[in-house]
Amino acid sequence: MQQVAFRQMKDGTREEYQFLDRLESAFNEGLVERLIKALENLDNSLSGYQVTRLEHSLQSAARAEADGADDDLIVGALLHDLGDELAPYNHSQLAAAIIRPYVRSQVTWIIHHHGLFQKVYYAHFFAEDPHERDRYKHHPWYQSCVDFCERYDQASFDPDYPTPSLEHFKPLLERVFSRTPFDPAVIGEAEAQGPVAE
Results as ranks from 00 to 15, higher is better:
Gln3Glu: 13
Val4His: 05
Val4Asn: 03
Ala5Trp: 11
Arg7Gly: 15
Gly12Ser: 15
Thr13Trp: 06
Phe19Thr: 00
Leu20Cys: 07
Asp21Glu: 12
Leu23Glu: 13
Leu23Ile: 14
Ala26Tyr: 13
Ala26Met: 13
Leu31Arg: 13
Ile36Gly: 02
Ala38Pro: 00
Ala38Gly: 10
Asn41Lys: 13
Ser45His: 10
Ser47Val: 10
Ser47Cys: 02
Gly48Asn: 10
Gln50Leu: 15
Thr52Arg: 01
Arg53Tyr: 05
Leu58Glu: 07
Leu58Asn: 02
Gln59Trp: 02
Gln59Phe: 03
Ala61Glu: 01
Ala61His: 01
Ala66Gly: 02
Gly68Ala: 08
Asp70Gly: 12
Leu73Trp: 00
Ile74Pro: 00
Val75Met: 01
Ala77Trp: 01
Asp81Trp: 00
Leu82Gly: 00
Leu82Thr: 04
Asp84Gly: 07
Leu86Ala: 14
Ala87Asp: 06
Tyr89Gly: 10
Tyr89Asp: 12
Asn90Phe: 09
Asn90Gln: 09
Ala95Phe: 08
Ala97Lys: 12
Ile98Lys: 07
Ile99Asp: 07
Arg100Phe: 03
Arg100Ser: 15
Val103His: 01
Arg104Val: 09
Ser105Pro: 05
Ser105Cys: 15
Ser105Glu: 08
Thr108Ala: 15
Trp109His: 09
Ile111Asn: 04
His112Ala: 14
His112Asn: 12
His113Val: 05
His113Trp: 12
Leu116Cys: 08
Gln118Ile: 02
Lys119His: 11
Tyr121Ile: 05
Ala123Arg: 07
His131Met: 12
His131Trp: 14
Arg133Lys: 07
His138Arg: 08
Pro140Gln: 01
Tyr142Glu: 02
Tyr142Thr: 10
Asp147Phe: 03
Glu150Tyr: 11
Glu150His: 14
Glu150Thr: 14
Arg151Met: 05
Tyr152Trp: 14
Tyr152Lys: 10
Asp153Ala: 14
Gln154Gly: 05
Ala155Asp: 14
Ser156Ile: 03
Asp158Ile: 00
Pro159Thr: 14
Tyr161Asp: 05
Thr163Ala: 09
Phe169Asp: 06
Phe169Cys: 04
Lys170Leu: 12
Lys170Glu: 15
Pro171Glu: 01
Leu172His: 01
Arg175Glu: 08
Val176Asn: 07
Val176Leu: 08
Phe177Val: 09
Pro181Trp: 04
Pro181Phe: 03
Asp183Trp: 09
Gly188Val: 07
Glu189Gln: 13
Glu191Leu: 07
Ala192Glu: 05
Gln193Cys: 12
Gln193Ile: 01
Gly194Thr: 02
Pro195Cys: 07
Glu198Ala: 14
Glu198Tyr: 11
